[in-house]
Simulated scan of single mutants.
Amino acid sequence: MSRNSTLVVQQAKAALNQMKYEVAQELGIQIPQDGYYGFMATRDTGAIGGNITRKLVQMAEQQLQGFRR
């Protein structure tokens, strides 16, 4: 199965990368400086991704609430 991770808005890449570091810091997880995630526990990378998704959904819900008013 191939994975398509192409960003729709290319400028979002920097914001998502920043969010990754912020979430990791909140969780107390150290992201490798060399960019190689092979030595990280799957549990840690999953926690980072899950929390990013949770934050993005929360942001989208807040935006949608603004449209309903």
Score class of each variant (00 low, 15 high):
residue 12 A to S: 15
residue 41 A to V: 09
residue 23 V to H: 05
residue 1 M to P: 05
residue 10 Q to A: 07
residue 34 D to T: 01
residue 61 E to W: 15
residue 59 M to E: 07
residue 51 N to H: 03
residue 13 K to F: 05
residue 65 Q to A: 08
residue 32 P to S: 03
residue 32 P to G: 02
residue 57 V to G: 03
residue 19 M to V: 10
residue 46 G to Y: 03
residue 34 D to F: 07
residue 55 K to G: 02
residue 30 Q to V: 13
residue 68 R to I: 02
residue 60 A to L: 09
residue 9 V to T: 02
residue 51 N to S: 07
residue 3 R to Y: 08
residue 20 K to L: 08
residue 42 T to M: 00
residue 23 V to C: 07
residue 53 T to H: 04
residue 67 F to T: 10
residue 53 T to W: 02
residue 33 Q to C: 07
residue 51 N to T: 07
residue 36 Y to R: 10
residue 56 L to V: 06
residue 54 R to Q: 11
residue 50 G to W: 07
residue 66 G to Q: 12
residue 4 N to F: 06
residue 62 Q to I: 11
residue 46 G to E: 06
residue 4 N to E: 07
residue 11 Q to E: 09
residue 3 R to T: 03
residue 29 I to R: 02
residue 2 S to T: 15
residue 63 Q to A: 15
residue 57 V to W: 05
residue 59 M to L: 10
residue 65 Q to Y: 05
residue 14 A to F: 04
residue 13 K to A: 12
residue 30 Q to L: 11
residue 44 D to Q: 08
residue 27 L to T: 00
residue 63 Q to T: 13
residue 21 Y to H: 04
residue 53 T to C: 00
residue 15 A to H: 03
residue 20 K to Q: 03
residue 12 A to F: 14
residue 13 K to R: 14
residue 7 L to M: 10
residue 16 L to D: 03
residue 53 T to L: 01
residue 69 R to D: 12
residue 66 G to D: 00
residue 36 Y to C: 13
residue 15 A to R: 14
residue 1 M to R: 12
residue 23 V to P: 02
residue 31 I to Q: 03
residue 1 M to T: 10
residue 63 Q to Y: 15
residue 25 Q to H: 07
residue 8 V to W: 06
residue 35 G to L: 10
residue 26 E to F: 11
residue 66 G to H: 05
residue 56 L to M: 08
residue 23 V to A: 03
residue 45 T to D: 01
residue 4 N to K: 12
residue 12 A to W: 10
residue 63 Q to R: 14
residue 4 N to Q: 12
residue 15 A to L: 13
